[in-house]
Amino acid sequence: MEFSVDTSAGVRVGVAILPERIDAASCAELQAAAAGWLKQTANLVFDCSGLNFIDSSGLGVLVSILRKTIEQDGDLKLACLGMKASMLMELTKAKRLFSIHPDAVSAIAAFHGGVRQ
């Protein structure tokens, strides 16, 4: 998973590009990677443009990462959410927990001021 830190919004925003699939088999990897990212910054953006499939365990990991960012006064924003991932998040009502942006740039910009929106 690609991860970089962007400072264009005046705060440190970690941007990660999610893999194609997040399911029971691969979500542990995301969980472990996120623990490392959270040490660098609590402001995260997940670029979901490549994400084609997510199941409930993957969703569980996203929600737990979101909870950790909020505990550290940050946020996890999702960008470029595809139709399939979006449908699953609506079905499970997880979508309303996240702030969702059309692309990574607007998600980063939304961190301007460092306030959870």
Partner: peptide, 13 residues
């Protein structure tokens, strides 16, 4: 949109 999602979690659907 015509988008389809094949669920793999039997406890969801």
């Amino acid at each position: 949109s015509g988008a389809t999602l094949q669920m793999e979690d039997p406890h969801l659907m």
